[in-house]
Design a binder for these strands. Structure first.
Lengths: 107, 107
DNA sequence: CAGGATCCGGGGGGATACTG
DNA sequence: CAGTATCCCCCCGGATCCTG
């Protein structure tokens, strides 16, 4: 799940709220429709979120995090905070390294 | 870095110890030589580990986590613990879901 | 509106061979 | 031993179109 970048972004959007398919599609910028569907299936299968279908027309499907999903979000948030905290530092490191060692990593 | 599965595995191997290139190559099972090199370059560039070259023959290069690298490992470890804790539960969920909804996710 | 089905290209990454 | 250089395959995932 860590390797799949979309999973964690979808889960992040469902923090403390329920969203419909279209809302998720708009919320997670950049994801394609097929990928969103696939990601949601995987997450539902693993029990991280629930999928509720309303027999209305037009159709309406809502996604909500389960308890399990919430605990994952909490753990992932810690990692996200690490990234936020050190984002600048890492950027500086890279720039300095690129200056010091020209084109050892860059094309 | 999250999306790159090798990075976190390499970092994990360097917890509290220094390893040489070959040792890392053996420790991280499945990684190819070019990928290990690339991963190490990226991590060095970002300041997560240091690369020390000894002018001996045969050559000898050692990799050690920096302070920054250690903090990332700590954060990632929390996520790893989540995975370890819920591994079984998730497996059960998937199996149950596969039984209940035949081939909605499987081929 | 929610999502199958299909097509297709780009690039991540492995295998291999070579070098200082 | 610690890489670099090259080739090349596979499949991830985006675009697009269609349906209940």
């Amino acid at each position: 799940m860590i390797g799949d970048k979309w999973s964690i972004l979808v889960i992040g959007q469902l923090r403390d709220r329920t969203l419909r398919f279209g809302e998720l599609h708009r919320a997670v910028t950049g994801i394609s429709q097929p990928m969103l569907t696939l990601t949601l299936r995987q997450l539902e299968r693993s029990g991280l979120l629930t999928r509720t279908v309303y027999a209305s027309v037009p159709p309406r499907v809502e996604y909500t995090l389960t308890e399990l999903g919430s605990t994952l979000l909490d753990a992932a948030t810690a990692l996200g905070e690490w990234a936020a905290t050190h984002r600048k530092e890492i950027g500086d490191n890279r720039r300095r390294h690129d200056d010091t060692h020209p084109s050892r990593t860059r094309p």
